[in-house]
Design a protein around this nucleic acid. Structure first.
Lengths: 341, 341
DNA sequence: GTGAAAGCGCTAACAA
DNA sequence: TTGTTAGCGCTTTCAC
């Protein structure tokens, strides 16, 4: 079933059928109606490829997701999908699994498929990989920091400041021996978080203890193992700051397994404010990150470029959104321990 | 940059270039090497649309996901993506949000884009909607039950039996007043779970109390609200069976908020065994469902059809995978309460 | 307002 | 082994 079938049935030329499909205003109402009727009856849909061959537009954007089992990334993805779907675009979600090689493979695919734009969530690609995309003139937006910002539009939060605020809160709550468990990913964000951690300690004139800073897998398991190690130290910390809520969940589990109580023996602070963070016991103090909003803003930015709202070679924009401390039980305020719990 | 550029540069015809792209064995090694070199240098990639126009194959499958923020669905999706990626296919993930209209819109898109196959996770489409797909000869696999199985390949678990086993366990643990909180979705699965619940009660000669069976939103919030209502009854149940872990999490929160303890005052049993279920306090007894495997099996089945391994009009297959009871603290064994906790 | 025909970039049948 | 060319289904320019 193709455009010629329709044309023949309607007794017109293919050009006319094509016109009612693309510029109906240029067709006499009568002929148009007749053709529209036949199109509806036969459930004819123009061939996607033939169309693409002419237009070179796909109505598709690519979306690189570090890991689709991580709810944090999916919240961003949801934000992107929300605006894409509203714009009648479809988002090709690529599950990158924090694997640069896999991300590269997917990138090649996306370029091959001539997507109209690409959004990278916490990309692990090299700056030079983005050149490829630039050469193809495919608009790109980064969500989450990139190691050496390759001059691209970006939306993120200020991780260093957020982390500093978090540590400050622990300090204000009377903790001094504060350890940090940071995940192997997202790498750049976590570096900023580490910087914030160090900075906060410094500003409080507290020494930075190398042993209190540990890299773990960004997962519940990673948090468990990391916290276990910390708890077994000769001089264990009295508070743990985790670079993600999942790490914090694992840490809490380990602390409990060690027979310690939270926050009395060891306080815990997370990062992300995932849905479960106020369902664990005790509820987790954490940093709320506007993931969905990040996705929405990122997508809007991308579509602005695609639709030409944004000038071709405009200075790359960086949108920084606000994070917010969510104070709950797990961080245990010194003066109020006993009163609150 | 197109095939003609390459041909000219290599001093050959487009056909030869096309050959090294598709049937390199039919090209003299020397010419082939020369052309390959030029292709590499110029980073030429054949136009996706022109290719599709000839092959009518896209290397793309569609994947309908009820809700991308639900980790359960994403685990299935991950299974699908794993095999798709390995087969060098790309999966177009559609976030359907349990909205039949949105699912229909996405379905139209997928058909338009000539995907090579579609996998539906817990679809809310009508049987007649699948006719569309059948007409287009697009292979389809269902993951999760469908209301009136429209004669399609399917992979699922036996929800009724799983639910029955779950209730049996609660009965064996000494509970008699057992309520059930079931989510509005996935609809068909939950009907089976309800049937299992009723059957187990019947076999134990216990009456079925209409007020103990409540429909709630399939979410933490839904579980909270539902359990709150149950706890406020004149004769509240002593155990709650939830159709999903998320509902169970909400229920646990509500029970705690009522000042009751789990499982002593009220036992809780979930369904799904999501990662967090052994991280809440107390750890949640639940039914382990092999989601990832479901995705893998579904995808394999789909590719068997796409690649013609499966006969065109073979009898639709139904693959039923095994679920398993995960007994943890929250369901509280009567005789062992006090000893265990 | 409509039709004829060129062309989008590629593949494959046929010819050489 | 390689080249010529028709054709995939559509859009659009140019005539009429």
């Amino acid at each position: 079933m193709n455009i010629r079938h329709i044309a023949k049935q309607a007794g017109v030329s293919v050009a006319t059928v094509s016109r009612v499909l693309n510029h109906p205003e240029n067709v006499a109402p009568k002929t148009r109606e007749k053709i529209e009727k036949i199109i509806a009856e036969t459930e004819y849909t123009p061939n996607w490829f033939a169309r693409g061959l002419n237009f070179n537009k796909t109505g598709t954007i690519g979306l690189m997701i570090p890991h689709i089992l991580n709810s944090v990334h999916m919240e961003i993805a949801k934000g992107v999908e929300d605006v894409a779907h509203q714009k009648e675009y479809i988002a090709l979600m690529c599950n990158v699994e924090n694997d640069a090689a896999k991300e590269k493979r997917y990138l090649d695919q996306l370029i091959k498929r001539r997507v109209d734009g690409i959004i990278f969530i916490c990309s692990s690609l090299e700056a030079e990989d983005f050149q490829l995309v630039q050469e193809q003139k495919i608009p790109v937006v980064l969500i989450g920091e990139h190691k050496n910002n390759p001059g691209l539009h970006m939306v993120s939060i200020d991780c260093q400041q957020a982390s500093k605020k978090a540590i400050k809160h622990l300090l204000d709550s009377g903790h001094e021996k504060i350890a940090m468990l940071y995940g192997t990913d997202p790498r750049v964000e976590n570096e900023y978080k580490i910087a914030g951690y160090k900075k906060a300690l410094k500003e409080a004139d507290l020494p930075f203890a190398r042993d209190y800073l540990r890299e773990v897998e960004n997962s519940i398991e990673g948090g468990y193992l990391g916290a276990k190690k910390l708890a077994e130290m000769k001089e264990p910390p009295r508070a743990i700051f985790a670079s993600s809520d999942y790490i914090a969940f694992g840490a809490m589990d380990a602390i409990r397994d060690k027979g310690l109580s939270i926050p009395e023996d060891m306080a815990v602070m997370g990062f992300d404010n995932v849905r479960m963070s106020n369902l664990v016991e005790p509820k987790l103090t954490t940093v709320e990150v506007p993931f969905h909003k990040m996705g929405v803003y990122g997508a809007r930015l991308l579509f602005d470029i695609i639709e030409g709202e944004e000038e071709e070679n405009a200075e790359p924009k960086t949108i920084l959104l606000q994070s917010k401390l969510k104070i709950r039980k797990s961080s245990g305020h010194k003066e109020r321990i006993g009163e609150m719990f």
